[in-house]
């Protein structure tokens, strides 16, 4: 099996990984870096559980070929809380607003929301829905998730 060596930034740290060329970014994060926050819910880019941020954009890490990550910057749900353990405002809002139930979609959901708010700190509700529409959730009916994101958005302005 052919391997590839990639250097990139992961949650602010410079890292290298040598993994099979066929691996996705998701598999590399989970297996090589043991960052299991991003989940595989479908493996074909249809559920959003694997969402991470690459160079500022939310992407499905399950469809992201690992060689492409060379030189890029990746942020996962593990990288957004403060070093001292202070939660990111989205993480806090999700807990406070019951935007987390089983939690399996949560990592991806938070990363999609973060990618949105990083670019647009005060999005319209429609923008929030659009940004989260690639992340399925079966527990919440989305209402409290959208509310949680809106709360953080308002908190920013």
């Amino acid at each position: 099996m052919k391997k590839v060596s990639v250097c990139f930034t992961l949650n602010g740290d410079s890292v290298t990984a040598e993994v099979p060329v066929t691996w996705s970014l998701l598999k590399t994060l989970r297996e090589y870096f043991e960052l299991t926050g991003a989940k595989e819910g479908c493996g074909v880019g249809e559920c959003g559980c694997c969402t991470v941020i690459v160079d500022g954009d939310a992407v499905n890490s399950c469809l992201y070929p690992i060689p492409e990550i060379e030189g890029r910057s990746v942020v996962t749900v593990e990288g957004i809380a403060g070093k001292e353990g202070t939660l990111h405002p989205l993480q806090k809002a999700f807990l406070e607003n019951n935007a987390v139930q089983c939690g399996f979609c949560t990592s991806g959901m938070i990363m999609s929301a973060k990618a949105l708010l990083d670019k647009n700190p005060d999005p319209a509700e429609e923008d929030i829905r659009t940004s989260l529409s690639g992340n399925f959730c079966r527990c919440t009916g989305y209402v409290q998730i959208i509310e949680a994101v809106r709360r953080v958005a308002k908190g920013n302005t």
């Binding site: 880019g45 969402t51 939310a58 992407v59 499905n60 659009t130 529409s133 690639g134």
Partner: peptide, 9 residues
């Protein structure tokens, strides 16, 4: 097209 994640790439 698909979702924001798909449209981004």
């Amino acid at each position: 097209v698909g979702s924001v994640q798909i449209r981004n790439v």
